[in-house]
Every structure is written in C-alpha cells, then in structure tokens.
Amino acid sequence: MHPVTVLAAVAAGAGLLTWIAAGRSKRLGPAPHGGRQAPPDRGRAYGRRGAEVTASAAQRLNHASSLLAGSVLFDSSLEHYRGQFFNRAMYTPIIVSSITLASSLHGAGDTDPGRSGMRHAVQAVAGATGLVGFGFHAWNVGKREGGYSFQNLFYAAPIGAPMALTLAGLLGVAAERVRDADPDAPRLAALPAGKVLALATAAMLLGTTAEAGLLHFRGAFQNPAMLIPVTLPPLGAAALALAATREPGTSQADAKAAMWAVSAMGVAGVAFHAYGVARMMGGWSNWRQNLIDGPPLPAPPSFSGVALGGLAALELVERHRSLSSPRRLHAPP
C-alpha cells in the first residue's frame, strides 16, 4: 500500500478514536447551573449552540480550533509530503492535528457546560506539539547555509506554521476551561475570560499576519490582494484590543463585524490561492507541482479560525454580566 494511504488511514483512525473517547455528543439539555437559559428551539434539535454564554462561547472556540486544526492538517500534509517526510517527526503534526480536529468538532457539537477531560488533554497536546514543531522548524532554518536569513525564512521549514497548531490547542483548551467557568462572570487563569481571550486572539491575529506577511513578501506582493491579509487582520486585532477595554455589556457590533470580515477573508483567501495555482505554469493540469509550489490552499482559513476565536471572546465580553445589570438578552419565557 502507498505510504500516503497508510498515513491518511492512521490520521483518520486516530481522529475517530478521539471522537469516541470524548464520549457521545451531548444535546440540548438542562444546564447544571440552572435557570438562566434560553428556551430550547423546538424546531431544531441539533446544531443550536448551548444557551449558557460559557457553553456558547466554548462552542465558538471549538469552531475556531476546528478551522485551525483543519488548516494545519491539510497544510502540514501538503508541505511535509513535499518534504518527503524526510524526518519521521514530520508525521507528528498530521496525526496530532487530526485528533485535534476530531476533538474540536466534538466540542463544537457539545452544548453542555462542563469540560471534557479527554478533549482538554488532546488540545493541550496540540498546543505543546505546535511549540515543539516551532522548535524543529527554527532549528531547520538555522542549520541551513546562510542561517537565519530571509532566504531561509522563505524557503526552509516555515517557522510560523507549527504555531497554528499551538493556536488550535490554546483555543481548544480555552473552550474546555470556559465551559467550567461561571456563566455570570467567566474567568480564565483568574482573569475575566472575555478580556483575556480578546487580547490573546488579537495577539494570535498579529502572529498569523506576520506569517502571511513574510510569505506574501516572498511573493513580492505581486497581486494587490496580497496586501489584504497584512492590513485587515491587524485592524481586527486593534478592534479586539479596543473591545477588551470596554465596559462589560457594551455592544461590540463593530469588533464583531471586523471578526466576521477577517473570517470571510480567510475563506476568500482559498479562492485567491486557487487562482494563484491557476497562474502557475500549467495551471491546475500541472497540479502535482503547482499545489505544492503555488500558494497553499489550506493556509488562509487559519485567519478565519483565529477570527472565530475573537468572536467567542467578544461574546464573552459582551455578555459578561455584572450582578447589577440584568441580562437583556434572555427575557423570561
């Protein structure tokens, strides 16, 4: 059997096992904290986010984590296939992102507050794996002729790429912790969860921008559209930072709009990259070369992933309830 088939089977199998181990997906049901939740939407038994702000935000965080993990899964598969799995460690991100994706998807469908230990563990592993990958890539860049030069940052193992897995893990871990938090005043690491997450996702956006900026600089910004991912996400990051400074309960419509814009950009980026592949010599009919030499199709959605994390943060900030102010969003039945 071709090694690529084996690898795909192993990755898929690992994902499935993770899904099963995380337990059957829970559906809408009474929250343990009792009381403050919206009525079940009777028309739709599935897909509705948990009514508790913590569960809802956690699911959003899992969406973010899913997108990032998916991006890493496809991107690292493509790039490590290009690198011929020269080092056995190059299989790692594929397996890990695959279980991360399974775990995040599982969480995304879980409307319950309360964390899953399994998912939490998997996400933590993803976070750590990304860091190790970063170390590997940094070592790969440095050992090349010319050391830490632009040339090697362009063409050696992409130094920022493994961090996307770390981001997936971080957001995934945050999702589980948020599930455990008090819905009235959710806290993460003893700080207000919304603010922490807003600032964290702002930083993540800037990091992702740096990666895109480096690679688009390598492409000489030959198409003006290549400037969008280095301008829009920093604006989004600024909006998030601003949101973190606002009073709890203030409307965050502008920041949310910015996150949706970044999110859409990530999806549109795939189309732009597909156009980029078509512009390579031989276009799509030369896909075996151009899919790996052209602009990477799976990369842009990592922006969408981080932006969804930002949305979760905004949800937490917006709906963070001080005891003095009644919650407007949930009228009694």
Binding site: A220, G276, M280
Partner: peptide
C-alpha cells in the same frame, strides 16, 4: 554556499531575470 562559508567569504542568491512570483503573463519559474 557551503564552500564560501568554509572559506570565510560572503555569498548570495543570484539576482536573476526570471520571476519568482507571477508577473502579467509570466508564471513564476518552475
């Protein structure tokens, strides 16, 4: 590059008149 580094002299990727990214009807070098 290895040789130059061993001899203690500078080297560089060569400036070339072939594009490394698309330009009009020119695709990047394959």
């Amino acid at each position: 590059a290895r040789g130059a580094e061993a001899m203690g002299i500078a080297w560089t990727p060569t400036p070339l008149a072939t594009v490394s990214a698309p330009r009009g009807d020119s695709p990047p070098c394959v």
